[in-house]
Design a protein around this nucleic acid. Sequence first.
DNA 1: GCCAACGTTGGC
DNA 2: GCCAACGTTGGC
Length: 177
Amino acid sequence: MSTNPLNGYESLAMAKKASKKKQYWLFKSEPNSYSIDDLEKDKNQTTCWDGVRNYQARNLLRDDIKVGDQVFFYHSNAKPMAIVGTAEVVKAGYPDHTAFDKNDHHYDEKSDPENPRWYMVDIKLIQKFEKPVTREELKAEEKIADMMLLQRGSRLSVQPVTAAHWKHIHKLAGAKA
DNA sequence: GCCAACGTTGGC
DNA sequence: GCCAACGTTGGC
């Protein structure tokens, strides 16, 4: 077994290089509680994506979602359900402070600043689609059929999107990627 | 470690 | 409003 530290350095460099590659995501939000119009009105058209209380989604927010990654903004439980625009990650994973606030709806007594359980990222609006791409339209697209969003029982509120889907959905929206 | 009960998500 | 599909909780 080699203990040459260079090996470790090389793999670290490779890991860093890999993590620099831009990735795509989809964030769900119920427009009743927070819509893309809210994001548009927010200061700097930026918001912290707080309130995620699912470990799989938490791990993505904490470990995988990087500054410069791009995000589809999806309206769930809405009429119509649709991808309504895009945003860019402007701050990578950091502790979700709403979990520390007793008066917050997302308060979690098991999370504290010393040992935070939940994480969030900040996103900034890129564009609101003039023509949102509805769930109906997505379902009608053969090329989109394998999208996580459309899989039966898929509830993950923060999920990866392939570059191919990212592109194709922009085409459906008549927008530039 | 199993699993029943319960709560939530989110499409339909 | 219904309910399938999960995820979590807690007794054992």
